[in-house]
């Protein structure tokens, strides 16, 4: 039987634009940016258009590198490509100063309400994976 590998790839580049691009560039510099919505709430990661009114948004706001777990699910069988090679927690994290949550992984076991902080990747290239993972804040409230 003849066999051949099947590699699905999309060999093109995307331009990330003024909002997502600013966020990703910020990560490279270890800063996290959100964006202020029409109602004053800070959306992080930032979106180009207001979630309610669809108006274009422009006011970038820096938020904290620590935050609070708003939901979580434990991953015991990690899959290829996931940021941590072993068991971890997939979580929604509301960073200090933001009003929405970011999806990322926590290196450790946490529950809703726990405090976590960003562990930056050593080499950052303007990707969401510049955040290597979040880690629990010891003694956090």
């Amino acid at each position: 039987m003849l066999e051949a590998p099947l590699v699905i790839e999309y060999p093109f580049n995307r331009t990330t634009g003024p909002v997502i691009g600013a966020f990703l560039t910020g990560l490279r510099e270890q800063r996290v940016l959100g964006i202020r919505g029409v109602d004053g709430r800070v959306v992080c990661p930032p979106v180009e258009y207001d979630p309610q009114t669809s108006e274009p948004l422009t006011e970038m706001v820096e938020v904290g590198a620590e935050g609070t777990v708003t939901s979580w699910s434990r991953v015991t069988t990690p899959r290829d490509g996931q940021p941590l090679g072993g068991a971890h927690t997939l979580a929604l994290i509301r960073l200090d100063g933001a009003d929405t949550s970011m999806l990322h992984v926590v290196d450790g076991e946490v529950v809703t309400g726990d405090r976590v902080r960003i562990r930056w990747a050593d080499e950052r290239e303007g990707l969401i994976t510049d955040i290597a993972a979040f880690e629990p804040v010891e003694g956090g409230v």
Partner: peptide, 15 residues
């Protein structure tokens, strides 16, 4: 924001 993390559908549903 999401794709590069390769979150699987079961863990997402768990959230």
């Amino acid at each position: 924001y999401y794709g590069p993390l390769w979150p699987d559908s079961v863990a997402l549903a768990g959230l």
